[in-house]
Amino acid sequence: MSSSSTTTTTTRLLMLKASDGVTFEVEEAVATKLGAINNMVEEEGSEDLICLPNVNGKFLGMVLEWCKKHANNNTNSDKGNDEVNKWWDKEFVMDLDQNTLYHLLMAADYLSGTELVDLLTEKVASMIRGKKVEEIRETFKIKSDFLPGQEEEIRKKNSWAFE
């Protein structure tokens, strides 16, 4: 899913290479929504090919898809834009399975995509909010590793949150 550049002709194109060799051609304005890439562009200047050995092509693609939407929506500056972005963000995280959410979050964090990290951590938080201890364990498949008796003690100290 490399990006087409049919709409704009003036912006510079960057090649991003993922860990599995998949490459993406993206406009600079889109890629620099990611802090890490912005830094590389500023430091290295002329280099058009950027290798990202810590990100898999599948997730890099998703991160770039998000960047593209946000870069596009930022250019035409009317008030409805925030709403459009919010709606689009909602769609973006709605059906993410946990595995994808995890890898996407790791990719966004590695690439310093602050806004995307915020969006995804909020999604994770929404999976915890209002849930009982057992439900959280089940959601994330977490096993309790407290010593015998320790959990009861901690539970007692946190009992205000169980009523």
């Binding site: 915890i128 201890v133 959280i136 309790s144 959990e151 539970r155 946190n158 949150a161």
Partner: peptide
């Protein structure tokens, strides 16, 4: 309150 519950998970 959520934090308090989460701290009992693991």
């Amino acid at each position: 309150e959520d934090v308090s519950r989460l701290s009992v998970v693991s």
